[in-house]
Amino acid sequence: MEMHAEHIEELAEGYALGALEPGERVRVEQHIAACPPCKRHIDSVEDTTHMLAFVATPVAPPPRCKLKLMEKVAREQFLQTPTRRSRTVNAMSMWAAVATVAFIMSGAWSMRLQQQLSEVTGAQNQIQGQLASLQTERATMTAQIAQLTTLESVVVAAEAVRSLHGAGSAANASAKTYMTPGKNEAVLIVHNLPQLPPGKIYQVWVARPELQQPLTMFNPVDTTEPVPLQPPEPMDSYNWIMVTIEDAAGAQQPSKDTVLFGEL
């Protein structure tokens, strides 16, 4: 919608204070996105407005807030740092170098020692087998990196975070759900879930009063594990999220062995 500059000026204080009606706010944002002078005016009014924050009496937050923040920052950096990929690439380079040298050497031997040709060919086949194995591993790692990248994008774009608390046999466990209202995808990051005995698996559920919806199953191999969630309906259409221990094939109704629970 077209909006004149004088109209923006009229709405600037309400916008900076967050006191406009939703429709007015959207119109201001659309206007300033294309109008640098009005954007500067709004910025200036906002700078004054947010000095009001100093009116609130400062209170030191508990240390756990900083710990949780820095843990989250470190985890995000970990997800973004291609450590495993680098190691794989390095391993590939090393094996490629080994293979190249071995190939050259085998060629020299074959020229000088024809009788050893069959042995060299065998060595070549072995190295080619190793290379094929590494290529398969690289494909697996690439898929894992792609999945982590997808999970990271969901986490970074998340507009809401919901906490889950440990219960039962996993009282020390915790988790957070990163979600965006209206979207059918979310990421659950669990901490300190104990290893399960053979034949058992963790299963995620979302629920509301009339429905318990089974989602993905997982078995953590690390103390911190991101789990992708893709419920059939948007996450915010459910009231609760929980993790239970089920038989390895999964279940359609949750067992009573709940290990994580939280409100959505």
Partner: peptide, 25 residues
């Protein structure tokens, strides 16, 4: 700045747990 942000969140939300979430977020 965390004390100023936490103070703002407490004054606005009037809920300590919500203010802790706010300062982290």
């Amino acid at each position: 700045y965390s004390s100023a942000v936490f103070g703002l969140a407490l004054k606005t939300l009037r809920d300590r747990e919500a203010a802790e979430e706010a300062v982290q977020e």
